[in-house]
Write a protein that binds this DNA or RNA. Structure first.
Length: 580
DNA sequence: CGGACAAGCTGA
DNA sequence: CAGCTTGTCCGG
């Protein structure tokens, strides 16, 4: 169309928009009307008309050449600020890396409520200190991928202050409690902090430190100079639902794209972390001081019938202040046997083991069938508790300790005010500190049928060591086990995590497990069709409705997953599963 | 996701 | 063959 006044034809401004509709993983082009022109950029949250209805969405590309033959609609309105353009690009990479929908990542990267305007930026670095020099040297020696192995009781604030001294810093931690504590510490040191998601607008405007849980890795952070991940080994950095993205992996990619350092701090770096970055280790004495004294109770000589309580445990219960006992089994008893005929209590319907529920009935953990506590073979009502749970342990511990014992599991919301507590590993995440921690049956962790069992066990010991404080605070961690020489136990005992990761890396190599290979779990109604079409990867399964896809590296795995068109129906792809 | 539309089924 | 259900396709 020629301009009637004879001037050059104005080129219409066109943007690509990803709609915020879970089932659509596609970009659509829209015209930018003149009255919105100044408020639209890559990342902006907009509303658009799609197929007759208005939906939200994100501008992901600007200056798109208009394609002939398509009658474009205009953007309906601008909702507000969205992720900056570098993060928008990162979401595209992430949708490939975790075989997920772009909108899932864009939503995580956006403010929870509409942000119409930004406040003034909040800059202000802390005064240069001793830690700063240590960090600078480590970064100079190890380039941009740094794994900082700091023991559990080590203070993390100095690391953040050192990083913030070099420029605006993005920090992620696994849990809300740690985020709140660090934010308070930084503010006390005079460092302006934006805690996301609440302070998203401040983060977008600019702040010396942008801080939050794993989703904060998607937060805006203008002029970011470093990304810091705290407790990089923690499984909570990985999202549970698909796409199963992992905070430290995103942090590493974001930093690499920005050409800035990524610093991952952990008392017990995983073999994945070690294969990614260069590890910096404190002196032997500093690391030893930062782990708690570990008491390993070797139960190999003990009669299996003496139960969960060694003499040293009883002593700990009676002499220490606040004692926390960890037993990763909920309920009263998970396995029972008839004291008369010795038969195991099993389910009438499916034959599986039955557990004792709070009402005194036996209920099946597989099919849910319930029946009275009577032996099916001889009719006796006297059933022995072979594998007790937290509820029963609480009663027995109370008798042994001679003082009140409280119970905490993932379900209990309140916190009992008893000197001794027993619970599943949820207790370790619920309490701020303790004087002593006892793992009643640590073999359950050490020998779990999961490929990360050893690392998970060491992470629990690290968590416990942090709760009781380092050696100087006199906190104690007691571990009851029949595998006292297990690498995870030895690593915590000697305050040397490489005792575990060294052999662990070799085992993983032999078994062709990550980080030497890349895995994905595929499940859902459409999974059979999908996995049948995969090419260039190994497919195993199905095992309980799930297929395991294995490739020599992520590049090959994700290329294969991306090259098969998604069939209709439900499909869940879990890249880098934590367990399978 | 949700509307449009085509194909398939039913009853008169 | 109208009227309805079910399934597949596609959106700028």
């Amino acid at each position: 169309m020629a301009d009637p006044r004879g001037g050059p034809t104005p080129v219409p401004r066109v943007v690509s928009v990803v709609p915020d509709v879970p089932a659509i993983n596609k970009e659509f082009d829209y015209l930018v009307p003149d009255h919105l022109a100044g408020r639209v950029r890559v990342g902006t949250v907009v509303r658009v008309e799609l197929h007759g209805r208005r939906v939200g969405g994100w501008v992901v590309r600007d200056g798109v050449p208009p394609r002939a033959g398509i009658n474009l609609r205009s953007l309906s309105r601008v909702t507000g600020w969205g992720p900056p353009s570098d993060v928008v690009e990162l979401t595209q990479w992430a949708s490939w890396r975790w075989a997920g929908r772009r909108s899932a990542f864009l939503r995580t990267a956006s403010p929870e409520t509409r942000v119409a305007a930004l406040p003034p930026p909040a800059w202000g670095a802390p005064p240069a200190g001793g830690s700063r020099q240590v960090l600078d040297e480590a970064l100079a020696a190890h380039a941009r991928r740094l794994v900082l192995r700091l023991p559990p009781a080590a203070a993390l604030l100095p690391v953040l202050l050192a990083a913030a001294g070099r420029g605006p810093t993005l920090v992620i931690a696994p849990a809300v409690a740690a985020v709140a504590a660090l934010a308070a510490g930084l503010r006390q040191a005079g460092v302006p902090v934006a805690v996301v998601p609440g302070d998203w607008a401040q983060a977008a405007a600019g702040a010396q430190v942008v801080l939050g849980t794993r989703a904060a890795v998607w937060a805006p952070c203008p002029d970011v100079a470093a990304v810091v991940v705290l407790d990089g080994h923690d499984e909570r950095l990985q999202q549970g639902q698909a796409p199963t993205w992992n905070g430290w992996v995103v942090a590493a990619e974001r930093a690499a794209r920005a050409g800035i350092p990524c610093i991952v701090v952990s008392p017990c770096p995983t073999v994945e972390l070690l294969s990614w970055g260069c590890v910096t280790v404190p002196s032997r004495s500093v690391e030893r001081q930062g782990w708690a004294a570990l008491e390993v109770v070797d139960r190999r000589r003990d009669d299996p019938r003496t139960g969960l309580y060694s003499a040293r445990l009883v002593n700990l219960l009676r002499t220490s202040g606040r004692v926390v006992c960890v037993l990763n089994r909920k309920g009263r008893a998970r396995l029972l046997a008839c004291t008369g005929c010795g038969e195991l209590a099993r389910c009438e319907v499916c034959g599986g083991a039955v557990a004792l529920d709070p009402t005194g009935q036996l209920s099946c953990t597989h099919c849910g069938a319930s029946r009275p506590a009577v032996c099916l073979t001889c009719g006796s009502t006297r059933l022995g508790l072979l594998r007790i749970g937290v509820s029963r342990a609480r009663e027995e511990l109370e008798a042994l300790a001679g003082r009140p014992v409280g119970e905490i599991t993932a379900e209990t919301s309140w916190q009992p005010d008893a000197p001794v507590l027993v619970g599943t590993e949820a207790v370790l995440y619920r309490l701020p500190q303790a004087d002593a921690i006892a793992f009643l049956d640590f073999d359950q962790e050490l020998l779990a049928a999961r490929f990360r069992a050893g690392e998970e066990a060491l992470a629990l010991l690290a968590r416990a060591a942090r709760l009781v404080g380092g050696r100087e605070r006199g906190g104690r961690v007691l571990v009851q086990t029949r595998v006292p020489h297990h690498d995870a136990v030895q690593a915590a005992l000697l305050a040397d995590p490489s005792r575990l990761t060294g052999p662990e890396a070799e085992v993983r190599r032999t078994l062709r497990l990550p980080p030497w290979t890349a895995l994905a779990l595929v499940s859902g109604q459409a999974a059979p069709t999908f996995v049948a079409a995969l090419d260039g990867v190994e497919v195993a399964g199905p095992a309980s409705g799930r297929w395991l896809v294995k490739a020599s590296d992520h590049e090959r795995l994700l290329t294969a997953l991306a090259s098969v068109p998604r069939p209709g129906g439900r499909l869940r792809i879990e890249v880098d599963p934590l367990r399978f």
